[in-house]
């Protein structure tokens, strides 16, 4: 697309070649969805063995970490690290270095704000934070978060990407987890505290909120679907951002995560699967 003699409206820039970065369990399904929508998705993976061993690593183009990237190889990057914030910071710096300056980077801002993530970056203009409630590909809506640096072109690119995937967008202020993930994770945390205080059984708490409030899932089941490690990461992110007592994670939530009982994907969370 470069080399054109006339100024091209950003609307007409193609968003075809996507680089999807992050844990394969998230990156894989998103790559599937992107392929189905007509994009060319490539997964960034640490090494070939890991990619081959993982069901989601098969059947997609892969780029190995550290491998040279052509400046013009990708139109847009989606970065999905959530719980491992040091991996997130590291990969963002790598991407900044490897890609052409004008390639927008969409970064999942569930556990940390986009502004915090781009503090060390040289070109924060191209970075847009976004929040999707995991499991990511179940989401009907992406919340987009611009930092004071973010360019309107980058926001527009993010809108176009999600639109092409059939995911609506809403712009919200930069904050960990936006509106939906923040609300749901705080509900999970409150229910975890109620379980801990033996107010009622986990089953009854979920049943109560489904029947009395018509929530789509009982919050504890919802937490197990999201992944309790992510729920904890969102709570810790909110706690770090606002320094408010209200976001203090429940001790039993931390204990489950430490034990590896992070929910449905692992077969055990608040409930067994």
């Amino acid at each position: 697309m470069s080399g054109s003699q006339i100024a091209i409206e950003p609307e007409f820039y193609p968003i075809e070649r996507l680089l999807i970065v992050g844990p394969l369990a998230d990156a894989g399904p998103l790559a599937d969805r992107a392929q189905a929508a007509g994009h060319h998705a490539t997964l960034l993976v640490p090494d070939e063995e890991i990619a081959a061993a993982h069901e989601w690593g098969k059947g997609h183009r892969v780029l190995l970490e550290g491998e040279a990237v052509g400046e013009d190889d990708f139109d847009l990057v989606v970065e999905l690290h959530c719980t491992d914030l040091s991996a997130k910071a590291e990969v963002l710096l790598y991407l900044e270095d490897a890609l052409a300056e004008n390639v927008p980077i969409l970064t999942l801002a569930l556990a940390v704000s986009a502004g915090e993530l781009t503090r060390e970056m040289l070109i924060p203009e191209r970075v847009v934070g976004f929040s999707l409630l995991p499991p990511l590909t179940d989401s009907a809506l992406a919340e987009l978060m611009a930092t004071p640096h973010t360019s309107s072109e980058a926001v527009r690119a993010a809108e176009r990407l999600f639109e092409s995937l059939g995911i609506a967008t809403a712009q919200v202020g930069d904050s960990p987890g936006g509106v939906l993930a923040r609300t749901v994770c705080c509900l999970v945390n409150e229910c975890a505290l109620a379980v801990q205080e033996k107010i009622a059984s986990a089953e009854d708490i979920d049943k109560a909120l489904r029947l009395a409030e018509n929530y789509p899932y009982g919050p504890l089941t919802w937490g197990d679907r999201i992944g309790l490690d992510r729920v904890l990461a969102v709570m810790e992110g909110l706690h770090a951002e606002y320094k408010e007592e209200r976001y203090r994670p429940a001790a039993n939530l931390k204990q489950l995560v430490r034990a590896g009982h992070t929910g449905m994907a692992e077969g055990q969370g608040f409930f067994g699967y």
Binding site: T183, L187, N189, A194, K198, A200, I205, L209, A212, E213
Partner: peptide
């Protein structure tokens, strides 16, 4: 559902973050 006596029991208390957040 069987609930122990504590402020807001289950529903009033556990649904609070939906409004307060």
């Amino acid at each position: 559902i069987l609930v122990r006596d504590a402020p807001g029991f289950v529903v009033t208390r556990c649904s609070r973050p939906f409004l307060s957040e």
